[in-house]
């Protein structure tokens, strides 16, 4: 136990730096995944059929390929085609894209739960499609989708560990480097696990707060 405390004292500064990168990665990829998720959902409900096919196609393809393979593609293959991204950007784009299809499914479910009468009320008030989405469908759909979006957020936080494979110095990679150089595998991985857990708890709390604030009565 004393060994563990000593290790914790020695390793935590490095691991916390890694955790900082993990959180940055999570926030950036989350924002991108939600923005892209909205795009897939709006395209999926477009009147112009090719938009719907494209949305369906992207979701099918992205969902069917492991995240780690997508990251390798973006980081190792795109440079061959002239697109050389720094690791962090590649990680944000890869995770954001991979998670956008889950967010699209979350949002699609939430939007499906929006009362048809409210959409008609917007139409009757003269809203065009853009205003209807911005003022009625997305804000209400988002509320319905919040529990599942929150769940996806926690999964994304943990899956940022995959970005360790493309040299991003986030929590898992910092830990691996420590473990390799010190052989204190037990302490290092226990600390990593505790830090991920500690980071996920406030996320769950955040979702609960948002749900309460978004309550409709």
């Amino acid at each position: 136990m004393n060994d563990f405390l000593g290790d914790a004292h020695a390793f935590l500064p490095i691991l916390l730096r890694g955790l900082g990168v993990t959180l940055e990665l999570t926030v950036c990829a989350l924002s991108l995944s939600l923005a892209l998720g909205v795009v897939w959902v709006v395209m999926g409900r477009a009147r112009f059929a090719p938009w719907r096919w494209l949305s369906r196609g992207v979701i099918t393809v992205v969902r069917g390929i492991p995240i780690i393979v997508q990251l390798f593609f973006i980081y190792f293959v795109l440079p061959d085609w002239g697109l050389d991204l720094p690791p962090f950007a590649a990680g944000v784009i890869g995770l954001g894209l991979a998670y956008s299809v889950y967010q699209a499914e979350n949002l699609r479910g939430g939007i499906g739960a929006v009362d048809r009468g409210l959409i008609e009320a917007g139409e009757a008030l003269g809203m065009n499609r853009f205003t209807l989405w911005r003022r009625v469908i997305l804000p209400l759909g988002m509320r319905h989708a919040l529990p599942s979006i929150g769940n996806t957020m926690v999964m994304l936080l943990k899956d940022t560990s995959i970005a360790s494979t493309i040299t991003i110095a986030e929590l898992t990679r910092e830990g691996q480097l420590l473990a390799i150089s010190t052989f204190h595998n037990g302490s290092v991985y226990a600390l990593i696990a505790l830090l991920y857990l500690a980071a996920s708890l406030p996320l769950s709390g955040l979702v609960r707060v948002l749900e309460r604030k978004g309550r409709l009565a």
């Binding site: 009362d115 009468g117 409210l118 009320a121 009757a124 509320r143």
Partner: peptide, 13 residues
């Protein structure tokens, strides 16, 4: 031409 609905359809948010 405005409309008033049976189920009110006020925006709940």
């Amino acid at each position: 031409v405005a409309m008033v609905f049976q189920r009110f359809n006020l925006f709940p948010h």
